[in-house]
Design a protein around this nucleic acid. Sequence first.
RNA 1: GGCGGUAUCGUCUAGGGGACUAGGACACAGCCCUCUCAAGGCUGGAACACGGGUUCGAAUCCCGUUACCGCUACCA
Length: 481
Amino acid sequence: MKRPRVRFAPSPTGFLHVGGARTALFNWLYAKKFDGDFLLRIEDTDRARSTDESTRAIFDGLEWLGLTWDEEVVYQGANVERHYADAHRLLESGAAYRDFTPAADTERLRNEAEARGESYRFDRDTALLSDAETAEKLARHEPYAIRFRVPEGHTEWPDLVHERIAFPNKDIEDFIILRSDGTPVYNMAVVSDDIAMGITLVMRGDDHISNTPKQILLYRALGADVPQFGHVPMIHGADGKKLSKRHGATAVGDYQHLGFLPQAMLNFLALLGWSPGEDIEVMQLPELIERFNVHGLHAKAAIFDTKKLEWMNGQHLALIPIAELAHVVAPLFEQAGLATVADLASRPAWFHGVLELLRVRARLTDEIVTLATTFFGDSVEYDAEAIGKQWRDAAFTADVLQATHDRLASLDTWEPAAMEEALRKLAEEKGISGGKIFQPLRVALTGKTVSPGIFDVLLYVGRAHALARIAAAVAFLKQDA
RNA sequence: GGCGGUAUCGUCUAGGGGACUAGGACACAGCCCUCUCAAGGCUGGAACACGGGUUCGAAUCCCGUUACCGCUACCA
């Protein structure tokens, strides 16, 4: 079997959309799984809408996800000469013909038909000219478009995702392949490029299904092998409509900035329209490649469920090697003004310990930073709610906290087991439950009613800071009483 | 309008004629664990769009209807 060659061919008219990212992923997985090449082609022939900025955004998004491409990026705009030549080849062979009808005329006919509620089909017979007429118009340098002569019969193909799709050719009008200004039209450019790039499988969004018969016709007329096709479904928003800005974040970059991990995004996207066929959900890239199969590809549009993506991110946050997580998250700590990247790197054991505590409690990397504030700085801000709930009896609480402070201060090691033993003993002596100590202590240390386990907080806040915070709480309570 | 595509819990899905009392996951509710919060474990509610066939037997095959989506350009 020939080495498979697939491609992802976005047009640079916006950012990398999650739907595009998913098609890219399926193509990439296919290439990895079947030992093929994954190529990238930027379809920048629409000069007005294409921007370098969005080309960069596509690269960035793909790189962030780790969907790297083989070979150099192909820019469609650089190949217009060939597109033009291919269109003319079709003209020479008779597969296409010149259409001298002014664009405005066909547009008018189309509009009129539409107004009458009829469907318009370009009429080949009125456009076809005698050789003499053609020669005459050519001599006068009248502009013409080149139209493909759609043959009789029907066009069908076995789709990788759908079973078999067939179109009667009578429903396909003679479409333009070269505009009267000499520029190629999308279908012409795509086919010409895919042939030149040796693409063996075209996997793309199912919004291209109706382009496919036209393209197959072009392959045949050009004497090229018709590749395989696979049309993957669209991604919809919660309302069932095609995902768009109205639904919130749709660009891959948005999710990156929201605090999602690329591996979670990939995992989530893979499961949107593909299933391994087993009850397994959380997978890393190597496992995704190993399990990927064409059979699991879906035909039905899927709704983008942010909640599940968040859950998925939480799963990957828990799975990612701690050093890698530290690397991803350290810059965020710096941005938040908590600590510099260099500072964090200088005390990896401490930093990793803090991250271990928080990774299971967070779903987004940003949340880790928020939760981590407790472990930095000297002062604690007390939540009014926390005070009301855990520090009701100020005098009693001050007393308990003072005793807690003293017991902890007398410890000669600063490790959780010893702290717990000491404080449980204190509770027993006072005839109160452990919670009666831990909860007020939590407020003293964090200002909040919720936090990681209290002994872990003690450990990572550090002896000096912890004792200082408890003393400050006692002072606060005494002045309050 | 024409053409094409799709149809299983709210959502992502398993399911390729009998193993279906329709399984898993997210979300939701409850319980357990427990110093709080997460995580984890357990339990619960929740679906085969509708109507006809084919068959001893249909979520699964066929036809129709409906709904939704896409395309219908000298855009890509």
